[in-house]
Simulated scan of single mutants.
Amino acid sequence: MIMPMLGLKGSSARQQIDDRLQYHPQVYEFYTNAADFTPDGIAHLDNAVQYVQSKGIKHIVIHHPMVYKQWHSEVVAPESSYPDLYRFIEESTAALLKIADRRNIQILVHGGYSGDEVEEMIAHYSSLHDARQAVYKRLDRFAKEGGNHIMFENSIARVFAYGDPEQEDEILSHHYRLAFDTSHCFIEMHGDNQALQKSLEHLKSSVVHYHLVDSMGLTHDSLQLGTGKIDWASVLKRLNPDATSIYEINLHDQENCKEQVASHRYLTAIAKQIQQGD
Rank of each mutant, 00 (worst) to 15 (best):
D84R: 12
K144G: 11
V207T: 04
G115H: 00
Y86K: 06
W71H: 15
A179M: 02
K55L: 10
F152W: 05
A157V: 08
A123G: 07
A134W: 05
E120M: 11
L128T: 09
T227E: 09
D214C: 01
F180I: 02
K137S: 14
Y23P: 04
V109G: 03
A271G: 12
C185T: 15
I17M: 09
P25Y: 05
M3A: 13
G146Q: 01
R158I: 08
R132H: 06
F142H: 04
S81I: 12
Y51V: 01
P65W: 02
F152T: 02
A233T: 12
F152A: 05
D278A: 13
I274G: 06
Q275K: 14
E153F: 00
M3W: 09
G226M: 01
Q50N: 13
Q254W: 12
D84M: 12
G146W: 03
H190I: 10
E248M: 03
H202N: 10
H124W: 06
H124Y: 09
M66F: 11
L218F: 15
Q26G: 13
K198C: 14
D278P: 09
E120P: 04
R102H: 13
G56F: 08
F30S: 00
F142N: 06
Q133F: 08
T227I: 05
T244C: 04
Y28M: 05
L218R: 15
S80P: 09
N33L: 11
H174V: 07
H24K: 15
S245K: 03
K229G: 11
S199H: 09
E188K: 14
Q224M: 11
A35H: 14
K272F: 14
Y176V: 10
I62K: 06
E29S: 07
G226P: 00
G147Y: 05
V75S: 06
L251D: 01
L225T: 03
A195H: 02
V235A: 06
E201M: 13
M151W: 05
G112T: 03
C257Y: 07
L8K: 04
H64W: 00
Y136A: 07
H72P: 06
M121K: 02
N154M: 03
Q167H: 08
T32V: 02
K198E: 15
E117K: 11
P25L: 04
A179C: 11
R158H: 11
I230E: 02
W71D: 14
E119Q: 14
